[in-house]
């Protein structure tokens, strides 16, 4: 464990909690892409199947359980409890355009052609593009609630910190996973435009509205 991975995980946890609290407190999922949240639930489900087969550390197990529970709770709030506030007209990204290439890539490019390894690879590739429906929805509505931008900031920050974690691990531990690094780079690059708007607008107290 290193400081980049720990702060990255905590940033990820913060994002997940911020979103869950936003929906719960405002009793509304306006502006939130349910499709992205379903994809995140799928990412955690396919990546954390090893919860039952291998124990790495208490931290690892506890965080995985929290992520999975929060992901499904968020999906439930969006499509169940507060579905009346779900803005389906703007959450129209065709997720099959993400799932099909990700499945193909996971089958073709992986570390080992074994079920758990392919599921892990699928989850890594899917996570790198899972935010697209959310970013697409914001571009369609032309704006985002400030709390939603904080959610996106911490979500984008987490994988950015993981990039530094991988540099650290390569340098100090000789650990290197090309699949995770390339997918993590793609994931972080997708946030660049948002990061720019967040820093130049939201942090200056303005509302995030598009076109910039």
């Amino acid at each position: 464990m290193n400081i980049f991975r720990l702060t990255g995980d905590l940033s990820h946890l913060a994002a997940i909690i911020i979103l869950l609290l936003k929906i719960w407190k405002t009793r509304s999922c306006a502006g939130i892409s349910g499709k992205s949240q379903i994809l995140f639930a799928l990412v955690f489900t396919t990546r954390y199947l090893d919860l039952f087969s291998s124990f790495i550390s208490l931290y690892n197990t506890v965080m995985k359980v929290i992520y999975i529970m929060c992901a499904y709770a968020t999906v439930y709030l969006i499509y169940g409890k507060f579905k009346a506030t779900y803005d389906g007209n703007h959450d129209t990204f065709r997720v099959e355009f993400l799932l099909i290439p990700v499945v193909l890539l996971a089958v073709l490019i992986n570390h080992a052609f074994a079920p758990m390894e392919i599921l892990w690879t699928f989850s890594i590739y899917l996570e790198s593009v899972a935010i697209l429906p959310q970013l697409f929805m914001i571009s369609k509505t032309g704006e985002a609630e400030t709390i939603t931008t904080h959610y996106l900031f911490f979500l984008g920050l987490y994988r950015t910190l993981y990039l530094f974690n991988w540099i650290w691990r390569f340098y100090f531990e000789g650990f290197f996973d090309l699949i995770a690094v390339v997918a993590g780079l793609v994931q972080t690059i997708l946030y660049c435009d948002f990061f720019y708007l967040y820093i130049t607008k939201v942090l200056k107290g303005k509302k995030l509205s598009l076109p910039a």
Binding site: D9, I56, N110, H111, A112, F113, E117, A180
Partner: peptide, 10 residues
């Protein structure tokens, strides 16, 4: 493919 890299990351 390469041997399985340890999956200790979240």
């Amino acid at each position: 493919g390469d041997d399985d890299v340890p999956k200790d990351e979240l």
